[in-house]
Design a protein around this nucleic acid. Structure first.
Length: 869
RNA sequence: GGGAGCAUAGCUCAGUUGGUUUAGAGCACCUCGUUUACACCGAGGGGGUCCGCGGUUCGAACCCGUGUGCUCCCA
């Protein structure tokens, strides 16, 4: 197979992806091999691929491909999440554009549009994952609202309700006024906002013209005030406790109460209490038996509690009310104030605390085994620092609000009769069988849907039908899954809850390892987001650089457990690496017509092969260890160096035949095999180019994608060391040539003075070629008018036509000497320290002594060289 | 306000239980070089008070304390 001048990813990528899929390499069925199961964190069905997905899925693909090549049976399950609130928002927006209001539709009509939208636009992201080379088992594509999945979610609700772990209760919730739904605490994002602190005076219900002043950032909530609260020890207000005051503008009479919850220092020390619109006020109200007055409508406009502002948005009212209060003389002071405001993760609306009847999951009991699983390392977090974060949350866990006022999702299986009694069962029919009392009554189903995460927490189980068809062959084989790869942002939303569901329904953890990826940020460290517009177009990048280069770029920049600062230059590096790989293969193929089987393998080529074999094995062991610890970025860096430096820069140059010379057949074949092994090692990271080159090297019996790794050879340490020495000698001699202005083309005569001529004799051809020497000879005496290089105990003399730059030589030697003497001094200091000699471990002591001997030998060599100048 | 983490070369990071050369890599940078794999390249090079201060130790980038700066999570 002839290799084109350059690598063309566009053609190669799609060709191989199709081939792999056609051959069914990505499809898994239970068999007698060990399973390696990964479930994809299901992207939103509305989603498009962004950098976060790219990182996350590249990591999963690396793990899965490697498992495949290790002879396991990997199963990577794709799918999407119905993402109730995000999807419903998109469908509502789409309908609005078409002039249709959601309120004008029945639930069924709306869901019709939603499914239509899902079929048309949903799952684009899954197509995009193919472009990245992800080896997903497409036959298993799942969706959190597939019929069986849907039913399982409903069954879980019923089951938890019957176990008393789900209840209905009126609580303070986070209200999204735009989506008109409750949000869980985790869906609220707190941001600092510049606002105003309003100091408002309330007239006291005592004789005379006296007032009490409170401070608030939300003046529009005064209409919901049902008390003013002060600290019992606050001398300013002590005398007012038990008296009453009037809410400005509406003149409602409210009590003044005392509670040590109040911070005397904050504001005026007097707090307006609005139980309907603040969680702390609500608790205070409960304690003191205060009335609860709601002032907001569902959409965030004021209700009739605020007669003069009915129908106006609370944010607008906040501005108007200042003027009105000022006019009535009740606004005492206005100051700038920075406070934390909650925003809806989905709609970015300012979240309003609101009292409402919702469904809750009692988390205490569910959390206990899930916490234990992680703390005992039955489930391992990578990096482990997330254990702390997890523990902190799990120990202070609060109940989970799972009802959402949406239509797109799993509808809550609860029915109400006309008296408001609630019946929970999977269908109305079942309700009627289970509860005979409902006979003849009209039942209405709860209008709300379940939180999206109430379905995704079953993901690792239900993608294998572990809920809908318990104990089936697949769930028994694939569960628990092996590794979960996800973003730390959803450790509570998703990871923790999957562990709970796993413990509750399977009696087993859902996965053994959790790898938390970093967050992809831009070069300035900002999180990538649509609003900042700093998110690059991933598909565009793949078109420009090729999928392998993108995978390389994002992985090389992604240290284990850290955020990564995305910079396109790493993609360039990836593209350059593609070229390097391509060109190395071209070089090998160029030798093909000049293969010769005459004679035996030259001694120096034999050395080069032995050395590379040793280097290869040593690196394979190293990479193996790194991957076991999920240090993917380092593993890739190591492979990159092995290919670029050791194979291309050193090995290929060492075995390269001279101009129009032949190459021995054994050397050629061995070099091809080495390269093939390198491609195999790299394949999980860069699947496309490696598969292409694997087939370009020679006729292959199998695809690289499914080629299992051979056992790693034992490392020949002696050869490894000899190779390192050779590299060191070559670099030093080249440096000396450079510094003495000997041009690359100029030939030199090299004299070696060493106790170890045998080693140098084996490699002298390589040495001659690499330092451009026309002769190499061995000597036991110094050579006059030459350039001297001292290396360990050996000396090298370069004889060339050029005038020798004695000064620079001397300078180098003196510099080296100073360094060695400084080093020796530090070693001597240790060795002459009695306490060190007494306390240090014997092997440490031995090392120090060897350091001393070596340093002394080197100093002597340098001094001799200096003397000869 | 509570909690967690980080600070090593211009940048991004390694540095395993304190001793393996008075700290390593990749990228960037500088010099030289177009010799038929590759200028998306080759050869070589320079560059660090391991954030400051104090302590423990024979010995500290690593352990402890403290200060400073940054990041994240929770309220």
């Amino acid at each position: 197979m002839e290799l084109s001048k350059n690598f063309n990813p566009a053609e190669v990528d799609s060709k191989w992806y199709q081939h792999w899929v056609d051959r069914g390499y990505f499809h898994s069925e239970p068999n007698d091999k060990p399973a390696y199961t990964v479930v994809i964190p299901p992207p939103n069905v509305t989603g498009v691929l962004h950098m976060g997905h790219c990182l996350n899925n590249t990591i999963q693909d690396i793990l899965v491909r490697r498992a495949r090549m290790q002879g396991m049976n990997p199963c990577w399950v794709p799918g999407t999440d119905h993402a109730s609130i995000a999807t419903e928002a998109k469908v509502v927006a789409m309908l609005r554009e078409r002039g249709i209001a959601k309120s004008s539709l029945t639930r069924e009509e709306f869901l019709g549009y939603a499914w239509e939208w899902k079929e048309k636009y949903g799952g684009i992201i899954l197509q995009q994952l193919r472009k990245m080379g992800c080896s997903l088992d497409w036959e298993r594509t799942s969706f959190t609202m597939d019929p069986a999945y849907y039913e399982s979610v409903i069954n879980v609700f019923v089951d938890l309700y019957e176990k008393g772990k789900i209840y209905r209760g009126k609580r303070m919730i986070n209200w999204d006024v735009r989506a008109k739904t409750a949000l869980s605490d985790e869906e609220v994002i707190h941001k600092e906002v510049n606002g105003k602190m309003y100091h408002i005076r309330y007239k006291l219900d005592i004789p005379g013209d006296e007032y009490i002043t409170i401070a608030t950032v939300r003046p529009e909530t005064i209409f919901g005030d049902t008390a003013i609260c002060v600290h019992p020890k606050d001398d300013r207000y002590k005398h007012l406790v038990g008296k009453f005051a009037f809410v400005p503008m509406i003149n409602r009479r409210i009590p003044i109460i005392a509670d040590d919850y109040i911070d005397i220092e904050f504001g005026t020390g007097a707090l307006k209490v609005t139980p309907a619109h603040d969680i702390n006020d609500f608790n205070l109200g409960q304690k003191h038996g205060l009335e609860v007055i709601e002032t907001l409508n569902e959409d965030g406009t004021m209700n009739d509690a605020a007669p003069m502002y009915i129908g106006k948005d609370r944010i607008d009212v906040r501005k108007i009310i200042a003027t009105d209060l000022e006019a009535s003389g009740n606004l005492v002071k206005l100051e700038d104030y920075v406070n934390q405001v909650g925003f809806s993760e989905r709609t970015d609306a300012i979240v309003e605390p609101r009292l409402s009847l919702q469904w809750w999951v009692d988390m205490k009991k569910l959390a206990a085994p899930a916490l234990e699983a992680v703390m005992s390392d039955e489930i391992q977090f990578h990096p482990a620092k997330f254990k702390n974060v997890y523990r902190h949350w799990m120990e202070g866990i609060k109940d989970w609000c799972i009802s959402r006022q949406l239509w797109w999702g799993h509808r809550i299986p609860a029915w109400y009769d006309e008296e408001g009694n609630v019946y929970v069962a999977k269908s109305e029919e079942e309700v009627r069988t289970k509860f005979p009392a409902t006979k003849g009554k009209t039942l209405t189903q709860d209008a709300d849907c379940l939180d999206t995460w109430f379905s995704s927490w079953l993901w690792p189980i239900e993608v294998f039908k572990g809920m809908s068809n318990p104990n089936n062959e697949e769930i028994n084989y694939y569960y628990p899954t092996s590794t979960l790869v996800t973003a730390p942002e959803i450790i509570f939303f998703w990871v923790a809850r999957m562990i709970m569901a796993g413990e509750e329904y399977m009696g087993k953890i859902p996965f053994k390892d959790v790898y938390f990826t970093g967050i992809v940020r831009d070069k300035q460290g900002r999180k990538m987001s649509k609003s900042l517009g700093n998110s690059p177009d991933l598909l565009g990048l793949i078109d420009q650089y090729g999928a392998d280069a993108v995978r390389f770029g994002i992985m090389i920049a992604s240290p284990a457990g850290n955020d990564l600062l995305f910079d396109e230059s790493t993609l360039e590096q990836g593209r350059n690496f593609n070229s390097k790989l391509w060109n190395a293969a071209k070089l090998l193929k160029m030798w093909e017509p000049r293969i010769s089987n005459e004679g035996s393998v030259p001694e120096d080529a034999a050395f080069a092969m032995d050395w590379f074999q040793a280097k290869l094995s040593a690196t394979q062991i190293e990479v193996d260890g790194m991957l076991k610890e999920f240090r993917l970025s380092e593993a890739l860096k190591t492979i990159y160096g092995l290919i670029w430096d050791d194979y291309c820069s050193w090995y290929l140059e060492w075995i390269k035949p001279g101009f129009e010379q032949n190459i021995h057949v054994d050397v050629y074949n061995r070099s091809i095999d080495f390269y093939d092994t390198l491609l195999q090692l790299l394949h999980p990271f860069m699947p496309f180019i490696t598969e292409e080159l694997h087939h370009a090297l020679k006729t292959q019996t199998e695809d690289l994608c499914v080629k299992e790794y051979e056992p790693i050879n034992k490392v020949n340490e002696a050869v490894l060391h000899a190779g390192a020495l050779l590299k060191n000698v070559i670099s030093s001699l080249r440096d000396a040539r450079n510094k003495n202005q000997i041009k690359p083309k100029d030939l030199i005569d090299l004299h070696i003075q060493s106790d170890n001529n045998t080693t140098y004799k084996t490699i002298q051809n390589i040495l001659a070629k690499q330092v451009n020497a026309k002769s190499i000879s061995f000597t036991s005496n110094a050579i006059g008018s030459s350039i001297v290089i001292a290396l360990e105990k050996d000396k090298f003399y370069i004889v060339a036509d050029q005038a020798i730059n004695t000064e620079s030589l001397k300078e180098n030697l003196l510099k080296d000497l100073a360094h060695q003497e400084g080093f020796l001094a530090s070693v001597d200091k240790k060795l002459s320290n009695e306490k060190f000699v007494q306390n240090a471990k014997p092997e440490v002591l031995a090392v120090e002594q060897k350091k001393k001997t070596d340093a002394l030998a080197r100093i002597q060599t340098i001094k001799e060289s200096l003397a000869q100048l």
